[in-house]
């Protein structure tokens, strides 16, 4: 199986070509179409943002960064971006301890009604987002907290917490309890065992969960639309309001922040845990 570098490349290329149209033409065609379908809306926003004129047209009438140069002057976008980042950070940091405790509680202890608890922890997914929005608006409204930024962070934590619980749970499952017992057997204190054995072992799950929580928090729209006022409105809601009136390339430039964040998030998760890992948790 030893081969020279050159033949290795051509070998894998010929394998690729056999994989693509020849071998399974229909399946490959469908997948290729899906790739285009999935990527197109994201890419198009990015392309349009480099258009010099103020009318979106195809093919673009040139290349310019002028719309990007205007962003810093747009206070409404900058402050909304800041609020989005703060809310997303809040929900990420808040969900880490809750996710770890819940995952360990559910997995390591023999709870009665554990099936019931599992269904309960799926509530954020089974309750439609619009209903969660109405609920939180009524609760925060009754308590008089509407318009404060932390309510957005708390709302994001509530609706996305299952993602954190999941990714930590899969790590708790993978951790062999014998490792913890070995640590204790060697004289480690219970707390030391937790800090030095358990935590490092579930860390990849926490990292994956945090990444998902942060990016989803940054992107969250519907619940924010319902519970925010002009005081604490987040970037997706501002973009939504803006595109309803016009679709100037300026908004495309602002929206490209999200395209960039998405690419960075994919890159970072690939480096940290691997994209496959993201899929299996």
């Amino acid at each position: 199986m030893s081969r020279e570098p050159g033949t290795g490349l051509s070998h894998s290329l010929s394998r690729l070509s056999r994989k693509l149209p020849g071998n399974r033409p229909i399946i490959s065609g469908v997948i290729l179409l899906q790739i285009v379908f999935l990527m197109l809306p994201t890419i198009i926003v990015f392309i349009v943002s480099f258009q010099p004129g103020d009318i979106v047209r195809f093919p673009p009438d040139g290349f310019s960064l002028s719309w990007y140069a205007e962003i810093p002057e747009q206070d409404q976008y900058i402050s909304a971006l800041y609020r989005s980042v703060v809310a997303a950070l809040f929900c990420t940091l808040f969900s880490i301890p809750i996710g770890i405790l819940t995952a360990i509680g559910l997995m390591r202890y023999d709870l009665r009604f554990s099936n019931l608890f599992q269904i309960y922890f799926l509530l954020p997914f089974t309750v439609p987002l619009v209903v969660s929005g109405v609920i939180l608006m009524i609760i925060f409204g009754e308590l008089g907290y509407i318009g404060q930024l932390w309510t957005v962070g708390l709302a994001l934590t509530i609706i996305n917490i299952p993602f954190m619980i999941w990714s930590v749970t899969s790590r708790v499952n993978a951790l062999d309890p014998n490792l913890e017992n070995a640590a204790k057997n060697l004289g480690s204190d219970e707390l030391q065992t937790f800090v030095n054995v358990t935590l490092p072992a579930i860390m990849p799950g926490v990292v994956t969960g945090s990444l998902i929580m942060f990016v989803l928090g940054l992107n969250e729209f519907l619940v924010s639309l319902i519970i925010t006022t002009t005081n604490n409105v987040t970037l997706p809601v501002v973009i939504y309001t803006a595109i309803r009136s016009n679709i100037s390339p300026l908004i495309a430039a602002v929206a490209s922040i999200y395209v960039l964040v998405a690419f960075i998030a994919v890159l970072v998760s690939d480096r940290l845990v691997g994209l496959e890992e993201l899929l299996s948790s």
Binding site: I35, L38, M39, L40, P41, T42, I43, I44, V45, V48, V56, V215, L218, N219, E220, F221, L222, P236, I239, Y240, I243, I247, I251, A252, A255, Y258, V259, V261, A262, F263, A265, V266, S269, L275, L278, L279
Partner: peptide
């Protein structure tokens, strides 16, 4: 191609579809 759209958010993609 799976995770980039997933991480882009609903609003940006809705905007993309409006352009398309």
């Amino acid at each position: 191609c799976l995770f980039v759209p997933f991480f882009t958010g609903v609003i940006v993609r809705a905007y993309g579809w409006m352009i398309i």
